[in-house]
Design a binder for these strands. Sequence first.
DNA 1: CGACCATTTGATATGGATCAAGCGATGTGG
DNA 2: CCACATCGCTTGATCCATATCAAATGGTCG
Lengths: 228, 228
Amino acid sequence: MTKLTSARTAHHLDERVAPVPPGANLSTAGVLDPMGASMTFARNEEIYGEAEPADFVYKVVRGAVRTYKVLNDGRRQIGAFYLPGDMFGLEVGEVHASSAEAIGEVSVLVFKRSAVTALAARDTEVARQLWDTTARELRRAQDHMLLLIKTARERVASFLLDMASRCPGGSEFELPMSRQDMADFLGLTIETVSRTITQLENAQVIALPTSRRIALRNRAMLSRLTAS
Amino acid sequence: MTKLTSARTAHHLDERVAPVPPGANLSTAGVLDPMGASMTFARNEEIYGEAEPADFVYKVVRGAVRTYKVLNDGRRQIGAFYLPGDMFGLEVGEVHASSAEAIGEVSVLVFKRSAVTALAARDTEVARQLWDTTARELRRAQDHMLLLIKTARERVASFLLDMASRCPGGSEFELPMSRQDMADFLGLTIETVSRTITQLENAQVIALPTSRRIALRNRAMLSRLTAS
DNA sequence: CGACCATTTGATATGGATCAAGCGATGTGG
DNA sequence: CCACATCGCTTGATCCATATCAAATGGTCG
């Protein structure tokens, strides 16, 4: 795992974050999107920190984001990766449960949480969608727990299939994150991740046009290696 | 980990599950409780299965419940233990994300999900509480992920402190679950759990009046062993 | 008492971590 | 344009925490 010593950067949102009108909704269509302020973050820049006030909610427009928690000695667990179209940073409590960082250059839409929850108080449908967003995160977290009891090969196989389904490009796609990020997501070391990927390549299950680019060669086999 | 071959029992709720009147709420005070039907389950009895329709929501009255998921080869990950006062089985989607079983003899209150969500559609406060319940589960799951990257000793220490805070009796309490359940919750084997507990006992950090009964002797040390 | 089940303890094996070095791509300054 | 530092990734050698296999112990209930 990585040992982090953490540097902290703060961001202050200007007043361009408009109030949200009644009647809007949060669906994938992004009806809310025009209400959000656009912001960009540099590679490895912190978007928010764990336990900081959760005043904003985010939606990825371009790039990728990681959320994570760290133990007192710096071991890091990445809880999730967010890709374009994904929402993150939504909390019910007053503070963020994890930290969030830009993986590469990232642009996001930012919404005032108070505006979103105010809208939910008036519109039942919006309230349901907020709840649904949290429930989806919960299911993801539960699946992640299951992943963390698998073998290294099973974890990597599961991860690659998941990324393949989320990245544009079908069976060939670009990983937005480093091997270290993958390792901290999967609960493995960077060396184990690297070796496992090499094994899969040798077994013709995948190909690696570049180290960040994955081509699925035998999806059925990969699926089998997943342990469901 | 346990290898399960799974036996499946179904339960059918009689018509004593009453509709929920507007104005009630879900707080710990349990204003909703009188609306729930009481049911009991025997040791190891299934309460619901993964992917079954999530028509009911439950609240533990007496005993303890485990929720879990299994891999295709039977490895089991227990997602959570629910003790008296805890709510479980609440889903946003149509089906349960995990299975649930009674650990010992358990009695629960059962609510129709449709009644609860109908209430939420009329009462903003109830809607917020449902969302909050899911968000609390999410935070728990995120903490659980973090636990799964710790060492065996750290996991066991974290677990014992968590149970101590949730069980009545302060620094001496009864574990409701077997070593196997603990192992499947912690992502360890039963042998490793047992040995680790023995180590903690030898180090005078805890005492074991019986194998199921834990007395915390040095909470500060246990806390330190937690790795935060 | 005797059977059964949960738990502990012991001996050994192993998957993944750790420590260490090499390699290739990218960028920088001379 | 090239020497060379840097960074991300891979590969190799060894170690160790935890799993696995096996057996003993202890508590519970008929």
